[in-house]
Amino acid sequence: MKKMKTKDLVLIALFAALTAIGAQLSIPIGPVPITIQSLFCLLSALILGAKGGALSQILYVTMGFIGLPVFSNGQAGLTFALRPTFGFVIGFIACAYVAGTISTKLNKTVLNYFLSSLAGTVIIYLFGIIFFYFNMKYLVHKDLNFYTILKLTTIPFLPGDLLKCIVASLVAVPVSLRAKKEGYI
């Protein structure tokens, strides 16, 4: 196992902090607010790779669980895990790992980073939709049909998430190439 250097830890902490900031920039449109958290999650994956990206998102979730107000709208604490939207937050960890894994196996091009970002975004949606469904059915005791769940958790967010994939791809290519050249990653 490769030993982590101080600069790795700093970059992991930086992306955790950026994800926390992205959570505070939110537009509530229902049970799932529009935020730019996923943009920073994708950037962590594309720039730091699978391990670093996933660790940054684990750190982000841990910060929220210990009481730092890093979740959307300044929320914090272990009870956040009971919210119907918590699956999206857990999906950030899996997203970073999957997108980071895919992106490191491909050439550093905008198209490859875009495809990696799309795969990661699908992972976020999978975790979010599944958790939302089980939360609503077993904790809230509302039996919603699949289309209603998609209307609440996915459909309104698709254009914005597609834009985030594009932005992440356009930003990550020059940043990752420069960071590698300078020895940061």
Rank of each mutant, 00 (worst) to 15 (best):
F92A: 01
L18V: 06
P31G: 15
T109C: 14
L158T: 01
F40W: 10
P33H: 06
Y133Q: 08
A119D: 06
G74F: 10
A54H: 01
P69Q: 12
L82G: 11
I21A: 09
Q24P: 03
L39W: 12
L162T: 11
Y138K: 02
L150W: 11
K7F: 12
K180I: 08
A119V: 06
K181L: 09
F15Q: 06
L11G: 02
I21Q: 06
I27V: 06
V10F: 14
S117G: 09
K164Q: 09
T148W: 00
Y133D: 05
G100M: 07
K51V: 08
F15N: 07
V61G: 00
A179Q: 04
Q57L: 13
T62L: 05
G49M: 09
Y147P: 02
P69R: 15
A172T: 08
V61A: 00
F146C: 08
A45S: 07
L177K: 15
K164E: 13
C95N: 13
S56L: 00
I129P: 15
S44K: 13
Q75P: 06
S56Y: 05
M1E: 13
S56I: 02
G53F: 07
I93N: 00
F134I: 15
V173S: 04
L106N: 12
L126V: 11
L115W: 11
V167P: 05
T153Q: 11
S72Q: 07
D143F: 07
M1L: 11
R83S: 12
L162E: 03
T148K: 05
L162Q: 03
Y184T: 03
A179T: 05
D8N: 14
K137F: 11
V61M: 01
P84R: 08
K2F: 10
I34Q: 00
L82N: 08
T19I: 13
I34N: 04
L144N: 09
F40E: 02
F40R: 05
V175C: 02
R178H: 09
T79K: 14
F132V: 01
I93Q: 03
K151D: 02
I27S: 02
G91C: 04
S103D: 06
P33K: 05
T85V: 07
K181I: 03
T148Y: 00
C41T: 15
L25Y: 00
A23T: 07
A94Y: 00
G64F: 12
P84D: 05
L11D: 01
L139C: 01
D8Y: 10
F114H: 05
S116I: 06
I90K: 07
A16T: 11
K164M: 06
H141G: 01
G22K: 13
S176M: 10
T104M: 14
T121L: 15
L139Q: 08
A99V: 12
S116R: 05
I58V: 13
M4F: 13
A50G: 08
T85L: 04
G52T: 03
I90P: 04
K151I: 04
L163Y: 13
Q75H: 14
L115I: 11
P84W: 01
S44H: 10
I166N: 02
P174A: 06
L118W: 02
S103A: 10
F40G: 02
V173Y: 03
K142N: 06
F65C: 15
N73S: 10
A13Q: 05
I21P: 02
M63S: 05
I149M: 11
I155R: 08
V140H: 10
H141W: 04
